Computed example of a mutant assay.
Amino acid sequence: MTDKLSTKEILALKAQAHHLSPVVMIGQHGLTESVIKETDAALNAHELIKVRVLGDDRNERIEMCRALCEAVDAQLVQHIGKLLVLWRKNIEN
């Protein structure tokens, strides 16, 4: 599992993520295998990404977020409305 980030690290990552556009979208079919693969690939390429979650049920979005973070071994940096900011250290760097 990814090491826990400190408050200082989280603030720095939030600042870095501010200008990012979502690179993964979780649509009407929810958290599918292709969404997980796409998220994994995006994290390998960028370490820090935004994910847009469609759907109006906040609890459902939170559950999808938890499941996605677990599936790709990422840490949630920020959750604002339908946007998630995820981070995972790239071990190749």
Score class of each variant (00 low, 15 high):
residue 24 V to Q: 12
residue 39 T to V: 07
residue 86 L to K: 03
residue 60 E to T: 07
residue 77 V to P: 00
residue 32 T to S: 14
residue 84 L to T: 00
residue 73 D to Q: 11
residue 67 A to W: 07
residue 19 H to V: 09
residue 75 Q to R: 13
residue 31 L to Q: 14
residue 67 A to Y: 05
residue 17 A to V: 07
residue 27 G to K: 12
residue 35 V to S: 15
residue 2 T to D: 03
residue 46 H to S: 12
residue 1 M to E: 02
residue 19 H to I: 07
residue 88 R to T: 08
residue 49 I to E: 05
residue 47 E to V: 06
residue 74 A to Q: 05
residue 21 S to K: 13
residue 23 V to R: 15
residue 84 L to Y: 08
residue 93 N to E: 14
residue 67 A to I: 00
residue 12 A to T: 09
residue 28 Q to P: 09
residue 44 N to L: 13
residue 75 Q to K: 11
residue 63 E to Q: 01
residue 47 E to R: 11
residue 89 K to R: 15
residue 93 N to V: 08
residue 25 M to A: 12
residue 52 R to E: 11
residue 49 I to Q: 08
residue 63 E to T: 04
residue 73 D to W: 04
residue 71 A to Y: 12
residue 87 W to P: 02
residue 43 L to P: 13
residue 33 E to M: 14
residue 63 E to L: 09
residue 26 I to G: 04
residue 12 A to H: 07
residue 90 N to T: 09
residue 9 E to S: 06
residue 3 D to T: 02
residue 36 I to R: 15
residue 85 V to M: 01
residue 19 H to W: 10
residue 68 L to P: 00
residue 86 L to H: 10
residue 91 I to W: 03
residue 74 A to G: 00
residue 80 I to W: 03
residue 83 L to Y: 15
residue 51 V to C: 06
residue 14 K to L: 00
residue 4 K to V: 03
residue 18 H to E: 14
residue 39 T to L: 13
residue 6 S to K: 06
residue 47 E to K: 12
residue 25 M to R: 13
residue 60 E to V: 02
residue 60 E to C: 01
residue 45 A to M: 12
residue 79 H to W: 05
residue 49 I to C: 10
residue 72 V to Q: 05
residue 6 S to W: 04
residue 65 C to E: 05
residue 25 M to G: 03
residue 18 H to A: 11
residue 84 L to R: 01
residue 52 R to W: 08
residue 45 A to H: 12
residue 72 V to Y: 10
residue 35 V to M: 06
residue 77 V to H: 01
residue 50 K to M: 08
residue 11 L to Q: 09
residue 14 K to F: 02
residue 31 L to W: 04
residue 86 L to T: 08
residue 85 V to N: 00
residue 39 T to N: 08
residue 37 K to H: 10
residue 71 A to V: 01
residue 28 Q to D: 11
residue 2 T to C: 02
residue 23 V to C: 15
residue 52 R to V: 07
residue 61 R to S: 00
residue 15 A to C: 05
residue 41 A to T: 14
residue 92 E to G: 04
residue 11 L to C: 01
residue 40 D to R: 15
residue 39 T to W: 14
residue 55 G to W: 05
residue 91 I to N: 12
residue 93 N to C: 05
residue 1 M to S: 04
residue 34 S to M: 14
residue 42 A to N: 11
residue 4 K to L: 08
residue 68 L to C: 06
residue 41 A to E: 15
residue 48 L to E: 10
residue 17 A to P: 10
residue 29 H to Y: 05
residue 54 L to M: 07
residue 31 L to E: 06
residue 72 V to A: 06
residue 35 V to W: 03
residue 83 L to V: 11
residue 50 K to L: 02
residue 45 A to S: 15
residue 34 S to E: 15
residue 50 K to S: 05
residue 50 K to P: 08
residue 15 A to S: 12
residue 25 M to T: 15
residue 58 R to T: 00
residue 5 L to E: 00
residue 69 C to L: 01
residue 39 T to P: 13
residue 50 K to W: 11
residue 52 R to K: 14
residue 35 V to D: 02
residue 87 W to L: 06
residue 86 L to G: 06
residue 39 T to H: 14
residue 93 N to K: 13
residue 65 C to Q: 03
residue 23 V to A: 09
